[in-house]
Each structure stands twice: as structure tokens, then as C-alpha cells.
Amino acid sequence: MRFQLNTIIRTIFLCLLAATCSMWLAVPVCCAQPKAAPEYQLKAAFLYNLLQFIEWPEQAFKDAGSPLVICIYDDKAAGSAFDSYRSEKIRNRQLVFRNYDDMQAGLDCHILFINTQDRKALADISARATGRSILTIGEADGCARLGCIINFFTAENRLRFEINPEAAKRAGLKLSSEILKVARIVAEK
């Protein structure tokens, strides 16, 4: 086969490109702080961070040693994102992860992460959570207006959250001004 000039030029160019790419492969990317992260890993980090700023009423716990229970609606979707938080503590309370079935079975939940877009499920679950000191966290459009206390959304490809303070008040939760400052505040009506 006789190569033409432009084939050769193209080949050289691509080899250069490949070589450049390989160099990046060999040298791990510089920055200490990651630039991007998969959705649920990021949400898990957000959630863990937010918990530092939220206070539950005393009666929400059996005693000073009882754990802080996080229930996840769709734990398959969340995958292993929460794995590295299993051994963490918040205000001396051990974090415990359960799924939604456990909550339905009557077990306690302090945080309910409703990771679904299914509005039917959403309504069901938030109805179940009302009147209890449960921090409901959603990720569906309009969830906060429907009564979720915290709701994740994305803007410009970054994760943001909105807060429904009335719902928090009803649940007896105290939200620090630190997080109210960075959140979008949502009124119910």
C-alpha cells in the first residue's frame, strides 16, 4: 500500500496526540482537590457535611449512645457511595445506614434520603415522615415545595441544595445559619 503525504502527516499528528495522552496517563493529575465527582459520592459528601449543622431534638434518640440512622430509599442507585461513611460519627453518635424497607418495618430513621424522581413514592414517603423528627432529603424537582426539608438540585453542573425551613421547624430540627446561608430557601406556598 502506498501512503500518501497527508496520511503520513495525519499519522504523525495522531502519534503525537497519543504520546501526549500517554504522558497524562503516566502522571496522575496534579490537583489535591478533585474537580468532579460521581453524583452520589458528591451527595454523600454533602449529606455528611450538612449533618454537622443540624440538631435533632433530644427525644429523637433513645439515649446519648444511640446512633444516628440514615435510611436510603433506593440504596441500589446510591451504590457504594456511602460506604466510606459507615464508621463515621456525628456529635458522638455513630452513623448507621439502613434502607427504606427497614423504616417501613418500623425501625427508626433520623435522616431519610429519598433518592427518587417518582412523585408517587415521594408523596407516600414524605407523608410517612411528617410529624416525626426525620430529616427528609430529596433530589426531585419541587420536592422541597412538597415538604422535603432539604432538596438537591444541580446548577451549572454543580450540586446545590434548597431548604424548606417550615418543614424543618415542623420536624423540630434546628438548622444552623451556616447552611441556610448557602442554600436556596423555599417557601411552601
Binding site: 468532579a36 460521581p38 458528591l42 459528601a45 454533602f46 450538612l50 454543580r158 450540586l159 448557602v182
Partner: peptide, 9 residues
């Protein structure tokens, strides 16, 4: 939080 808010999804 503020650093997290700078990370792309």
C-alpha cells in the same frame, strides 16, 4: 460545603 459546591457532578 463551599468546596463541595465547586465540584462538578
Amino acid at each position: 460545603l463551599s468546596q463541595l459546591m465547586d465540584i462538578e457532578v
